[in-house]
Nucleic acid binder design. Structure first.
Lengths: 119, 119
DNA sequence: CTTTGATTTAGAATTATTCTAATTATAATT
DNA sequence: AATTATAATTAGAATAATTCTAAATCAAAG
């Protein structure tokens, strides 16, 4: 586990927003002024492959990264704001229908956030 | 509803693969030789906004488009292959926790497809 | 130390997608 | 039908996110 990987993992784990690669890069740069975007992308990819963090591909905006899941996401269909929410874990139900071998799942619930609902 | 929009909607509705914009463009081009990618992107965006089709942002590959949902997706974590699967509809459960205002949801279950499991 | 292999860097390259402006088609109005 | 207005399409440039390549640096093992 390399120096940068460690810090990137920390950043993702600590943040409660859902950071983009760019945001992570900017944040990391505050302490590691020499770091470069490619390094952040490389490390994020490695961390995702290893299952240490979770990637959220988004509609029309850069991917976001999230701590390892035990929660779901509420996404505003209008402005794209994301918040965490926890529904009952579905792993068992899913396995009943599929047999073993489920790795994980991604549940996003789309709604209109309060701000957007006003309009 | 314009000429191209109609055909694009048809293509998405008929296909059981989950087509990318590029694939839709190539398919449409067979009958409409003058059509251009921007038109396909424009129309896909409009159709998505109107809720006539569904966009699936993917990890590291172009977005895919799908007929209006009444099904979920099974995604191979290794090769990315997508297949349809139907779990019980969760809308009611979700609304209980959230109140009204849910627009829709996107459930993807990650697993290792049979081919990838062999390795 | 020296060698070997992995990590990082810099910057070019690629890919998907959007934008801009000009053109064409469609619909609405005289 | 002719004219105007509105929307859709085209071509191609532009953008933005991400990946690639090659060289440079670092870290670990002998």
């Amino acid at each position: 586990m390399t120096r940068y990987a460690k810090q990137i993992l920390e950043l993702v784990n600590q943040s409660k927003s859902h950071m983009t690669a760019e945001q992570i890069y900017l944040e990391l740069k505050k302490t590691e002024s020499k770091v470069v975007q490619a390094t952040v992308y490389n490390n994020l990819n490695v961390l995702c492959q290893e299952g240490q963090i979770w990637r959220l591909p988004m509609e029309g905006s850069p991917d976001r990264y999230d701590k390892i899941r035990k929660h779901d996401h509420l996404v505003c269909k209008r402005c794209g704001a994301i918040s965490d929410i926890t529904f009952d874990d579905m792993t068992k139900d899913l396995e009943e229908q599929l047999g073993e071998g489920i790795v994980s799942y991604d549940l996003r619930v789309f709604y209109l956030c309060p701000k957007c609902r006003e309009k």
